[in-house]
């Protein structure tokens, strides 16, 4: 299968998944207390306003028609209006999404840069004290709620040792946020910790599996030294399954960002979402769910394409 065909099919699949997501969000919209009208207009809306809204939005029509109408509104970029911030949801999200993306991508990069060598090293030193130590650490890191870890980080690196600020950089634009890199350190570490835990485990398992592959024996039979085998052959082969897992991990990463942003008061989508949850600002909540889901689908798609670049077998049409 050609790369183009593959891309087309994969994008089509992604579109299908996004459509299913819109159905889920549409269902949530109808599950709102008092129905979508009260959910969107807010608790203070009068019965007359609601009736008018229902008519305008076609909410007196059958469900499938309502869904199509809903899709059409989405397609025009209209996600409704926040009734606590009195701004279009789309504007709010456009302001904050890039900041969240920066935070998650930074966390992911830092996490992977640590996890991959750690996992490989563990595999090479399998069942030695080093391996046990890192295994235990990664279990603990995985089991530590991000906010608890974040709190410890703040206590340690902001209060006891005044190295980094306890608050994330503030500002409306991405530039303002990035102009204060010290403020990003603790949020990024908190976001990266569980990633290190999870991916060092994956990398360890993948490396161990590859070390027992026949091709390693062939290379040894040809006189290649262990270190060279590890870096020339095992490393790349172990990366393939790890890249595949990256796709699955995108939603977890966004979930983590939600907590990290709340904890460090980082002005991204997570914080927006959290404040909306506190004030039952449903248009914002549902808009965020939709956008985050689309971002997840796109992230997964990118991970798949990356895997195809790394592994010629996938590109060759065999999977």
């Amino acid at each position: 299968m050609s790369t183009l065909m593959y891309l087309a099919r994969r994008v089509l699949q992604a579109v299908l998944v996004i459509l299913i997501v819109t159905v889920v969000v549409f269902c949530l919209l109808h599950a709102l207390p008092g129905g979508p009208a009260r959910g969107i207009l807010g608790a203070q809306a009068t019965a007359q306003q609601i009736a008018q809204f229902n008519h305008e939005q076609g909410l007196d029509k059958p469900l499938p028609a309502q869904y199509l109408y809903y899709l059409r509104t989405l397609a025009s970029g209209d996600l409704g209006t926040s009734y606590t911030l009195n701004e279009p949801v789309s504007t709010l999200i456009v302001q904050r999404l890039p900041k969240t993306l920066v935070l998650t991508v930074l966390s992911a990069i830092v996490g992977l840069l640590l996890a991959i060598p750690l996992g490989m090293w563990q595999a090479v030193r399998r069942n030695k004290p080093f391996d046990y130590a890192i295994t235990t650490l990664s279990f603990v890191a995985y089991a530590t709620p991000v906010y608890f870890l974040g709190l410890l980080l703040v206590l340690l690196f902001s209060q006891v040792l005044p190295w980094f600020p306890a608050q994330a950089p503030q500002g409306d634009t991405l530039g303002q946020v990035l102009s204060d890199p010290a403020g990003l350190v603790l949020p990024v570490i908190a976001g990266a910790a569980s990633m290190v835990a999870v991916f060092s485990r994956y990398m360890r398992a993948a490396t161990l599996e590859n070390l027992s592959e026949d091709y390693v024996r062939t290379a040894r039979a040809g006189g290649t030294r262990r270190r060279a085998i590890l870096w020339r052959h095992v490393f790349r082969n172990s990366l393939t399954p790890v890249t595949a897992m990256l796709g699955y991990y995108v939603p977890v990463l966004f979930g983590g960002a939600l907590v990290v942003e709340q904890l460090f008061n980082y002005p991204g989508m997570g914080l927006l979402f959290w404040s909306a949850a506190q004030s039952s600002d449903y248009p914002v909540l549902l808009g965020c769910v939709l956008v985050i889901s689309v971002a997840t689908v796109v992230g997964t798609l990118l991970a798949d394409i990356l895997q195809r670049v790394i592994d010629p077998r996938v590109a060759g049409g065999r999977s």
């Binding site: 699949q13 299908l16 998944v17 996004i18 299913i20 997501v21 889920v24 949530l28 599950a31 709102l32 207390p33 699955y248 939603p251 977890v252 966004f254 979930g255 939600l258 907590v259 979402f273 959290w274 949850a277 039952s280 449903y282 909540l285 549902l286 965020c288 769910v289 985050i292 889901s293 997840t296 689908v297 997964t300």
Partner: peptide, 21 residues
Amino acid sequence: RVVDAGIAIPALFVLLVVSAI
């Protein structure tokens, strides 16, 4: 595909929305 869609919506976000509702 339904599972894919479900996984695409980060669990924590859905949980918060549903809990809020």
